[in-house]
Protein backbone atom coordinates (compact mmCIF):
# COMPACT_ATOMS: atom_id res chain seq x y z
CA UNK A 1 0.00 0.00 0.00
CA UNK A 2 2.82 2.39 0.91
CA UNK A 3 4.55 1.57 -2.34
CA UNK A 4 1.34 2.21 -4.24
CA UNK A 5 0.94 5.57 -2.54
CA UNK A 6 4.54 6.46 -3.27
CA UNK A 7 4.07 5.55 -6.92
CA UNK A 8 0.85 7.51 -7.19
CA UNK A 9 2.45 10.52 -5.55
CA UNK A 10 5.50 10.42 -7.83
CA UNK A 11 3.38 10.16 -10.94
CA UNK A 12 1.15 12.97 -9.76
CA UNK A 13 4.20 15.17 -9.16
CA UNK A 14 5.39 14.48 -12.68
CA UNK A 15 1.98 15.17 -14.19
CA UNK A 16 1.68 18.41 -12.22
CA UNK A 17 5.10 19.58 -13.43
CA UNK A 18 4.05 19.02 -17.03
CA UNK A 19 0.75 20.78 -16.49
CA UNK A 20 2.63 23.70 -14.96
CA UNK A 21 4.81 23.78 -18.10
CA UNK A 22 7.92 23.45 -15.93
CA UNK A 23 10.77 21.71 -17.75
CA UNK A 24 13.14 21.49 -14.78
CA UNK A 25 10.46 20.27 -12.40
CA UNK A 26 9.39 17.66 -14.94
CA UNK A 27 12.97 16.46 -15.33
CA UNK A 28 13.41 16.23 -11.56
CA UNK A 29 10.11 14.46 -11.10
CA UNK A 30 11.06 11.94 -13.78
CA UNK A 31 14.40 11.36 -12.05
CA UNK A 32 12.54 10.77 -8.78
CA UNK A 33 10.41 8.16 -10.54
CA UNK A 34 13.54 6.38 -11.73
CA UNK A 35 15.28 6.70 -8.35
CA UNK A 36 12.33 5.13 -6.55
CA UNK A 37 12.37 2.16 -8.86
CA UNK A 38 8.95 2.90 -10.33
CA UNK A 39 8.34 1.38 -13.75
CA UNK A 40 9.32 4.14 -16.24
CA UNK A 41 6.88 2.78 -18.82
CA UNK A 42 4.09 3.26 -16.30
CA UNK A 43 5.19 6.87 -15.84
CA UNK A 44 5.27 7.48 -19.57
CA UNK A 45 1.85 5.93 -20.00
CA UNK A 46 0.07 7.46 -17.04
CA UNK A 47 1.81 10.72 -16.18
CA UNK A 48 2.97 11.92 -19.58
CA UNK A 49 0.32 10.54 -21.89
CA UNK A 50 -2.26 11.17 -19.17
CA UNK A 51 -1.53 14.87 -19.10
CA UNK A 52 -2.07 15.22 -22.84
CA UNK A 53 -5.85 15.03 -22.69
CA UNK A 54 -5.96 17.61 -19.91
CA UNK A 55 -3.75 19.95 -21.91
CA UNK A 56 -5.84 19.63 -25.02
CA UNK A 57 -9.05 20.22 -23.08
CA UNK A 58 -7.47 23.34 -21.57
CA UNK A 59 -6.50 24.57 -25.02
CA UNK A 60 -9.93 23.87 -26.42
CA UNK A 61 -11.63 25.76 -23.62
CA UNK A 62 -9.26 28.73 -23.82
CA UNK A 63 -7.55 28.02 -20.48
CA UNK A 64 -4.17 27.70 -22.14
CA UNK A 65 -2.65 28.86 -25.42
CA UNK A 66 -0.28 27.72 -28.11
CA UNK A 67 2.90 28.64 -26.16
CA UNK A 68 1.70 26.50 -23.27
CA UNK A 69 1.47 23.52 -25.60
CA UNK A 70 5.06 24.24 -26.65
CA UNK A 71 6.24 24.46 -23.04
CA UNK A 72 4.32 21.36 -22.01
CA UNK A 73 5.88 19.56 -24.97
CA UNK A 74 9.32 20.65 -23.77
CA UNK A 75 8.54 19.37 -20.26
CA UNK A 76 7.32 16.07 -21.67
CA UNK A 77 10.45 15.69 -23.77
CA UNK A 78 12.70 16.40 -20.78
CA UNK A 79 10.85 13.88 -18.62
CA UNK A 80 10.77 11.26 -21.38
CA UNK A 81 14.53 11.49 -21.87
CA UNK A 82 15.11 10.73 -18.19
CA UNK A 83 12.57 7.90 -18.10
CA UNK A 84 13.78 6.34 -21.35
CA UNK A 85 17.35 6.28 -20.06
CA UNK A 86 16.12 3.74 -17.50
CA UNK A 87 14.49 1.49 -20.06
CA UNK A 88 16.39 -1.01 -22.21
CA UNK A 89 16.72 0.57 -25.66
CA UNK A 90 14.88 -2.30 -27.35
CA UNK A 91 11.91 -1.81 -25.03
CA UNK A 92 11.41 1.86 -25.82
CA UNK A 93 8.48 2.18 -28.17
CA UNK A 94 9.49 4.06 -31.29
CA UNK A 95 7.89 7.48 -31.56
CA UNK A 96 5.54 8.02 -34.44
CA UNK A 97 6.92 10.68 -36.76
CA UNK A 98 4.96 13.46 -38.47
CA UNK A 99 6.21 15.86 -41.11
CA UNK A 100 3.91 18.89 -41.13
CA UNK A 101 3.73 22.16 -43.03
CA UNK A 102 1.57 24.64 -44.90
CA UNK A 103 1.61 23.92 -48.64
CA UNK A 104 3.31 25.94 -51.35
CA UNK A 105 2.26 29.57 -51.91
CA UNK A 106 0.30 29.67 -48.65
CA UNK A 107 1.62 31.71 -45.71
CA UNK A 108 -1.02 30.80 -43.12
CA UNK A 109 0.56 29.25 -40.05
CA UNK A 110 -1.87 29.30 -37.16
CA UNK A 111 -3.83 26.10 -37.80
CA UNK A 112 -0.67 24.24 -38.72
CA UNK A 113 1.04 25.40 -35.54
CA UNK A 114 -1.81 24.23 -33.35
CA UNK A 115 -1.91 20.78 -34.94
CA UNK A 116 1.89 20.51 -34.70
CA UNK A 117 1.88 21.35 -30.99
CA UNK A 118 -1.01 19.02 -30.24
CA UNK A 119 0.73 16.17 -32.05
CA UNK A 120 3.95 16.87 -30.19
CA UNK A 121 2.26 16.98 -26.82
CA UNK A 122 0.53 13.72 -27.69
CA UNK A 123 3.92 12.06 -28.06
CA UNK A 124 4.58 12.34 -31.77
CA UNK A 125 7.97 13.38 -33.09
CA UNK A 126 7.06 16.42 -35.18
CA UNK A 127 9.10 17.97 -37.97
CA UNK A 128 7.53 21.34 -38.78
CA UNK A 129 8.64 22.61 -42.19
CA UNK A 130 6.88 25.98 -41.80
CA UNK A 131 4.78 27.72 -44.44
CA UNK A 132 4.97 27.94 -48.24
CA UNK A 133 6.57 24.49 -48.42
CA UNK A 134 7.22 22.95 -51.81
CA UNK A 135 5.61 19.55 -52.39
CA UNK A 136 8.98 17.93 -53.02
CA UNK A 137 10.24 19.20 -49.66
CA UNK A 138 7.51 17.29 -47.83
CA UNK A 139 8.49 14.09 -49.61
CA UNK A 140 12.21 14.60 -49.08
CA UNK A 141 11.84 15.31 -45.37
CA UNK A 142 9.42 12.42 -44.88
CA UNK A 143 11.99 10.07 -46.43
CA UNK A 144 14.83 11.52 -44.36
CA UNK A 145 12.97 11.21 -41.09
CA UNK A 146 11.24 7.91 -41.79
CA UNK A 147 7.94 9.64 -41.18
CA UNK A 148 4.69 7.82 -40.56
CA UNK A 149 2.48 10.76 -41.45
CA UNK A 150 2.65 13.79 -43.72
CA UNK A 151 0.27 16.52 -42.51
CA UNK A 152 -0.68 19.23 -45.00
CA UNK A 153 -2.34 22.50 -44.07
CA UNK A 154 -3.71 25.25 -46.28
CA UNK A 155 -6.05 28.19 -45.82
CA UNK A 156 -6.66 29.33 -49.35
CA UNK A 157 -8.96 27.83 -51.96
CA UNK A 158 -6.25 28.43 -54.53
CA UNK A 159 -3.53 26.56 -52.66
CA UNK A 160 -5.57 23.39 -52.12
CA UNK A 161 -4.17 21.75 -55.26
CA UNK A 162 -0.76 21.60 -53.61
CA UNK A 163 -2.14 19.11 -51.12
CA UNK A 164 -2.97 16.88 -54.05
CA UNK A 165 0.43 17.57 -55.58
CA UNK A 166 2.18 16.09 -52.55
CA UNK A 167 0.18 12.90 -52.95
CA UNK A 168 1.01 12.85 -56.66
CA UNK A 169 4.71 13.28 -55.84
CA UNK A 170 4.51 10.35 -53.46
CA UNK A 171 2.83 8.24 -56.11
CA UNK A 172 5.41 9.20 -58.72
CA UNK A 173 8.19 8.22 -56.35
CA UNK A 174 6.52 4.92 -55.55
CA UNK A 175 6.15 5.99 -51.92
CA UNK A 176 2.41 6.46 -51.58
CA UNK A 177 1.98 3.39 -49.42
CA UNK A 178 4.88 4.35 -47.20
CA UNK A 179 3.26 7.44 -45.62
CA UNK A 180 -0.19 8.34 -44.37
CA UNK A 181 -1.31 11.76 -45.59
CA UNK A 182 -3.70 13.92 -43.58
CA UNK A 183 -5.09 17.28 -44.69
CA UNK A 184 -6.80 20.23 -43.04
CA UNK A 185 -7.41 23.97 -43.22
CA UNK A 186 -10.19 26.48 -43.75
CA UNK A 187 -11.24 25.56 -47.31
CA UNK A 188 -10.67 21.82 -46.85
CA UNK A 189 -13.60 19.46 -46.62
CA UNK A 190 -13.98 15.74 -46.10
CA UNK A 191 -15.02 15.52 -49.76
CA UNK A 192 -11.84 17.24 -50.93
CA UNK A 193 -9.73 14.95 -48.76
CA UNK A 194 -11.43 11.94 -50.25
CA UNK A 195 -11.21 13.38 -53.77
CA UNK A 196 -7.42 13.75 -53.63
CA UNK A 197 -6.90 10.39 -51.97
CA UNK A 198 -5.78 11.62 -48.54
CA UNK A 199 -5.86 9.13 -45.70
CA UNK A 200 -7.41 11.48 -43.20
CA UNK A 201 -9.02 14.88 -42.63
CA UNK A 202 -9.48 17.01 -39.55
CA UNK A 203 -12.15 19.72 -39.35
CA UNK A 204 -10.13 21.24 -36.53
CA UNK A 205 -6.92 20.54 -34.64
CA UNK A 206 -8.49 18.10 -32.20
CA UNK A 207 -9.99 16.02 -34.98
CA UNK A 208 -6.68 16.16 -36.84
CA UNK A 209 -4.94 14.75 -33.79
CA UNK A 210 -7.48 11.96 -33.36
CA UNK A 211 -7.19 11.04 -37.04
CA UNK A 212 -3.40 10.95 -36.79
CA UNK A 213 -3.55 8.71 -33.73
CA UNK A 214 -6.01 6.38 -35.40
CA UNK A 215 -3.92 6.13 -38.56
CA UNK A 216 -0.85 4.98 -36.61
CA UNK A 217 -2.79 2.84 -34.17
CA UNK A 218 -2.38 4.92 -31.02
CA UNK A 219 -4.84 5.06 -28.22
CA UNK A 220 -8.26 5.33 -29.81
Amino acid sequence: MAKENETREALETLRAAILQYDVEAARSAAQAVVDRGIDPMLAIREAIAGSTDILHRRFDSGECYLPHLVMAGDAMTAASQVLESAIPRESIPAKKVVVIGTVEADLHSVGKNIVAMMLRSAGFEVHDLGVDVKSSAFVTRARETGADIIALSCLMTTTRPYQREVIEELEAAGLRDRFKVIVGGGPITREWASHIGADGYGADAMEGLEVAKRLVGIGT
Partner: peptide
Protein backbone atom coordinates in the same frame (compact mmCIF):
# COMPACT_ATOMS: atom_id res chain seq x y z
CA UNK B 1 -4.53 39.41 -33.66
CA UNK B 2 -5.39 35.83 -32.74
CA UNK B 3 -6.06 35.02 -29.11
CA UNK B 4 -4.93 31.52 -28.22
CA UNK B 5 -1.85 31.81 -30.43
CA UNK B 6 1.65 32.92 -29.52
CA UNK B 7 0.37 36.25 -28.18
CA UNK B 8 -1.44 34.32 -25.45
CA UNK B 9 -4.98 35.08 -24.33
Amino acid sequence: SMAGGFCGG
